[in-house]
Design a protein around this nucleic acid. Structure first.
Length: 571
RNA sequence: CGGGGCGUAGCGCAGCCUGGUAGCGCACCAGCUUUGGGAGCUGGCUGUCGGAGGUUCAAAUCCUCUCGCCCCGACCA
């Protein structure tokens, strides 16, 4: 492919709108251009990367027995009303009306549409199991789109849905997808880790996220270095840390803390560590007031709270409600003397000695509080996010917290959708049963973006060969003799014959420009063809990642490059 | 949704406070020279100063409204 015939608008300057490296480099290397907030056009180079990722996905899913379909972008409200998600999904669901004023939405995911298909077409256990997937553009009207393809409103997603006769079959489908995902992300050249995740309100028994490990990740992952355990911090179970019993014999006292509202303020003022303070956070769970006690250095995990209470909606109480409930302005809420409120406390609170809590009065805190003695009515449970140093729930080794980008997610759905939408089949005994489902997603653009997060240097992108837009970049330099371009084109033809994707920089540019653009675009192998080299029968091969330059005879180079690239592609 | 910031040439920005001919660098076009890591010289093109309204003899600049974009927050009391 001739570079002069492709739109690859590289930028020397960093566009101001980009924050993270993958976004900057995608713009600078001419992969994408923004059309609106969170909405992008894929330029030729970007699209080639997307297609490579899609191809790997297709190959692995087909191998796992899934079948490809393509569902519509717009779907009618009725389907979403059946499952209740029309109301539940909120503002993220992009809604529109057709000319007859009928409600539609742009699909943020397709459980309803596929379940509707299956309930119409699948009658018998003989048709199960089945697994349908599609690679489709999705639309979610995100609160805050950011980071380019990492969190767009419109994005390309592979979604798959499995249908089984029973739980055991569903578990097997889930396992197959889990393995397919491992294969897909491995082939994409990513450093990733499957982690236990929360199934959230989608429900179901099991869920894993596939996390690409990267500093810029939006998710926190708790990992154990001693065993295999890894989980989203939202999900990670926390074992209570055994603590030496404190000598908390002192009677609690109310002390003035003028204007000290935050954990930082109070702990600095009283000169105690944050772990000695117990925060009292007021929530409304389905409209009912709840106070949640966690240590000052801990973070409440709303997912765990919701589960414990069986609540659908959980939101922090607004300042006015806090005042009504506690009788004090925000910043001074405490568990002592609080009435009409459900009291929940994280397990770690029980062990705090000489605790500091809010006084339920302006500018007052209690000190020398013993939660077990002074807050006897609290119900204790695991209610916080995991932190670095918490014991692994499997082997008790201290956990490490790392950042990750969620590129894939697998869910066991069970019969949540099939029951609501009456997707049933007849089993061998002629009994009508609900189909057991699973669903599985991969963010295609996000996968490409996270690859850049993991593979780049100061010069630009360093694509892993399997998802690189091209495998080889030919850089013919000055051609006064007229021999360079013919040699280049001959080499291009030879490489293409060996099945490699080749980009030829045939532009009339100075060498420096070509080198810099090549490094920016990040094709894994660069071949420099220059007048000097040709007279000495030499052609240079440069590996983008290491910068290593090797010289070959023109007759050998195609074979040598093919030897380097082909094994990677077949991996 | 709350707070902050920014919209001036394709990209990066100055000019705005203190109203008076719309600028700089890169990119782009032409010519000459140059050619192994973002060339030099000469000449050229490019803007409804995000939009609407207002104040004024005069608005990129001041005022009002509006649209778009970016960042932070939207659990840590």
């Amino acid at each position: 492919m001739r570079q002069s015939r492709l739109l690859i608008p590289t930028l020397r300057d960093e566009p101001g709108e980009a924050e993270i490296v993958s976004h900057k480099l995608m713009l600078r290397a001419g992969l994408i251009r923004k059309v609106a907030a969170g909405v992008y056009t894929y330029l030729p180079l970007g699209l080639r990367v997307i297609r490579k990722v899609e191809r790997i996905i297709r190959e692995e899913l087909n191998k796992a027995g899934a079948q490809e379909v393509l569902m519509p972008i717009a779907s009618p409200a009725e389907l979403w009303q059946e499952t209740g998600r029309w109301d539940f999904y909120g503002k993220e669901l992009f809604r529109l009306k057709d000319r007859h004023e009928r409600d539609f939405c742009l699909g943020p995911t397709h459980e309803e549409v596929i379940t509707d298909l299956v309930r119409r077409e699948v009658r018998s256990y003989r048709q199960l199991p089945a697994n349908f997937y599609q690679i489709q553009t999705k639309f979610r009207d995100e609160i805050r789109p950011r980071f380019g393809l990492m969190r767009g409103r419109e994005f390309i997603m592979k979604d798959a849905y499995s249908f089984d006769a029973d739980e055991a079959g569903a578990a097997e489908s889930y396992r197959k997808m889990y393995e397919a995902y491992r294969a897909i992300f491995t082939r994409c050249g990513l450093n990733f880790r499957p982690v236990e995740a929360d199934a959230g309100l989608i429900g179901g028994s099991s869920s894993h996220e596939f996390m690409v490990l990267a500093e810029t990740g939006e998710e926190g992952i708790a990992v154990c270095d001693a065993c295999d355990y890894a989980a989203n911090v939202e999900r990670a179970e926390i074992q209570p840390i055994a603590q030496a019993a404190g000598d908390n014999i002192a009677e609690k006292r109310l002390v003035p803390t003028p204007g000290k509202k935050t954990v930082e303020d109070v702990t600095a003022f009283l000169n105690v560590p944050a772990s000695q303070l117990v925060k009292t956070l007021l929530y409304l769970a389905d409209g009912k007031p709840v106070a949640i006690l966690v240590r000052g250095d801990h973070v409440v995990n709303e997912i765990k709270v919701k589960k414990l209470l069986g609540a659908v909606d959980l939101a922090m109480a607004d300042p006015a409600a806090v005042e009504t409930l506690t009788g004090a302005p925000v910043g001074f809420a405490g568990p002592i003397g609080l009435s009409g409120v459900t009291l929940l406390a994280d397990l770690s609170v029980k062990d705090v000695t000489h605790a500091v809590v809010g006084g339920n009065a302006a500018d007052r805190h209690w000190v020398d509080v013993s939660p077990a003695r002074d807050v006897p009515l609290a119900r204790y449970a695991d209610l916080r996010n995991a932190m670095a140093g918490d014991p692994c729930p499997r082997c008790a080794t201290p956990l490490r917290i790392v950042r990750g980008i969620e590129v894939g997610h697998v869910f066991m759905l069970g019969t949540k959708y099939s029951e609501k939408m009456k997707a049933t089949y007849l089993d061998q005994q002629g009994q009508e049963k609900f189909i057991v489902m699973g669903c599985y997603g991969i963010g295609v653009g996000r996968t490409a973006a996270s690859s850049i997060e993991q593979n780049h240097d100061a010069k630009g992108i360093i694509w892993p060969a399997p998802i690189a837009p091209f495998h080889v970049h030919l850089l013919p330099l000055m051609d006064k003799s007229g021999k360079v371009m013919p040699a280049t084109l001959a080499l291009e033809a030879e490489l293409e014959k060996k099945g490699l994707d080749v980009l030829v920089d045939d532009r009339d540019e100075r060498p420096g420009v070509k080198f810099n653009d090549a490094d920016l675009i990040g094709i894994p192998y660069q071949i420099v063809i220059g007048e000097k080299g040709l007279t000495q029968s030499q052609i240079e091969l440069k590996e983008r990642r290491t910068g290593t330059v090797t010289k070959f005879a023109p007759a050998d180079i195609a074979l040598r490059v093919a030897e380097l690239v082909q094994p990677i592609l077949q991996a």
